[in-house]
């Protein structure tokens, strides 16, 4: 080993690092690559078994063949592209600059404790994004305004329910119902109301788990890939249930 740090403390750090990456929505092969890279910086061979909810990790000292095992639960963090890129860069920095474990841990803590994007900023931008989707699908200005407002109402409810740690599927069903109910008020106007209703729930589509699921399957991590795809599919079904409630109530049919 190229350092005086204990194998156990390095193992604990790499376990926490990889679990954070998985929780923040990084695809499995990148988590494995980054973790191995950090191990390499300390002259260690890192072997990871990644599951949907846990990571099993073994680190082996290449010189002494001493080994250490860690098992860690993957925490449920919000998707963060920022953590994804900055923590990946950190793994390169560890390798290139031969950072000590103390320096590495300090930099890691700084990245993960940086202030998150303000919820109001997210709320407004998600509203604009969904209104833009409405335009892309052929909606007019009135529909865009209604979708903007419906989206921020539904998304605010989602933020609040997630803060109370409610079940994901219930959160998705209720948010989809509220957003589509608000968008259904477009029906009273001579406007593109159906486009407004359809696009009002698009902010809920779990794009990152879907993409990561496909990447994982393609790269051979079939187990995590299918787990992610299954979870994403259930969320999509939840969106459909919420939207169906509105459609059945306001239009007496699903189409």
């Amino acid at each position: 080993m190229k350092t005086s740090e204990s194998l156990l403390s390095i193992g604990k750090f790499i376990a926490e690092y990889s679990a954070h990456l998985m929780g923040a929505g990084v695809h499995t092969s990148r988590v494995v690559r980054n973790s191995k890279r950090i191990g390499e910086a300390f002259g260690l061979d890192v072997k990871l078994g990644v599951f949907h909810k846990n990571i099993i990790l073994t680190i082996i000292d290449k010189e002494t063949n001493e080994a250490c095992n860690e098992v860690i639960d993957i925490p449920a963090h919000p998707i963060s592209f920022e953590h994804n890129s900055e923590l990946s860069a950190l793994s390169w920095e560890a390798l290139d600059n031969h950072l000590s474990l103390e320096e590495l841990t300090e930099k890691y803590r700084k990245i993960v404790s940086a202030p998150m994007i303000h919820p109001l900023f997210v709320l407004l931008l998600v509203g604009f994004a969904n209104a833009s989707f409405c335009k892309l699908f052929g909606g007019d200005l009135i529909s865009m305004g209604i979708v903007f407002s419906a989206t921020i109402t539904g998304f605010y409810l989602k933020q609040q329910m997630q803060k109370k740690k409610m079940n994901h599927y219930i959160v998705f069903i209720v948010s989809a119902f509220v957003a589509s109910l608000c968008a259904s008020t477009a029906l009273i106007f001579d406007t593109t109301s159906e486009i407004a209703m359809a696009t009002s729930v698009l902010y809920l589509v779990p794009g990152v788990p879907l993409i990561n699921g496909v990447i994982d399957v393609v790269e051979g991590y079939v187990l995590t890939g299918f787990a992610r795809l299954t979870e994403a599919s259930l969320l999509i079904v939840s969106i459909a249930i919420g939207l169906s409630f509105t459609l059945l109530m306001v239009k007496n049919s699903l189409i």
């Binding site: 109910l181 608000c182 259904s184 008020t185 029906l187 009273i188 109530m249 306001v250």
Partner: peptide
């Protein structure tokens, strides 16, 4: 038309 939507809202 669609008074039910408003009633529900």
């Amino acid at each position: 038309s669609y008074n039910g939507v408003m009633a529900m809202f």
